[in-house]
Write a protein that binds this DNA or RNA. Structure first.
Lengths: 114, 114
DNA sequence: TGTTTGGTTTGACAATAATCGAACTGTATT
DNA sequence: AATACAGTTCGATTATTGTCAAACCAAACA
């Protein structure tokens, strides 16, 4: 059942919205995830060296998936994530690239709130 | 006192964060405000034709200000807003431009939540 | 079949954020 | 001085979100 939900979770390209994508990218943890995906192509969820419980990480991946930023597939017993570059570049040209470049330039990403 | 707070509200360039900016841009109302500012240069708050109470609008302007996206100045009895293009382009090259272009391309901006 | 592995789902709680009415402040006009 | 005007601030309410522990599930392997 887990895998079925995951499939339903990922919106087709036409339903991806700009505010949704920006919101997904507006969290420091998720931004770091996106950054690593941009560098490494495809990664399994666990390989992010982020000090968080699995459930928190899973939540962030869910936000990234349901906003259309990342795609997740089963591959053996791992879940492999990748950026939906094609879709995003077609819908919002330059947005993902510039955000990644900016985040990469300054690893100093403080929280937006408080 | 209102005007004094407004000055303190706007962070210097060095304190503008990428997640903060993305969060500010992730709301449809604020995105529309930014879009109009991009087209028209400087505008007073009232001239946005948005169907909201003043306090709600003011809230959105506050978020935009405190994230560093817009600057607000008194001019006579109006408050004049403008995008902080120079700061944003220096910090996050291409981000604001591509977001504005994407938002402009598709006025169909649905809410990120729900 | 049982167990480990990698990640999801659920449920609960705390923190943030959006919305609105009402009171307020500074500027200009009379 | 009194009033109008533009927008802010306050306070309360509601909706979203982030965080975590615990239970769960499917794939791989013993």
């Amino acid at each position: 059942m887990a895998s079925k939900n995951i499939e339903q979770e990922q919106p087709p390209g036409g339903e991806i919205t700009l505010p949704g994508v920006l919101h997904a990218l507006s969290d420091p943890v998720r931004l770091e995830i996106v950054l690593k995906l941009a560098e490494s192509g495809e990664i399994a969820c666990g390989c992010f060296g982020l000090a968080m419980p699995k459930s928190s990480l899973s939540h962030h991946f869910k936000v990234l998936r349901s906003s259309g930023v990342v795609a997740t597939k089963r591959e053996g017993k791992n879940w492999v994530n990748s950026l939906r570059r094609k879709d995003l570049d077609a819908l919002f040209p330059g947005v993902l690239d510039s955000v990644i470049a900016a985040a990469h330039a300054r690893q100093k990403m403080e929280s937006p709130r408080k």
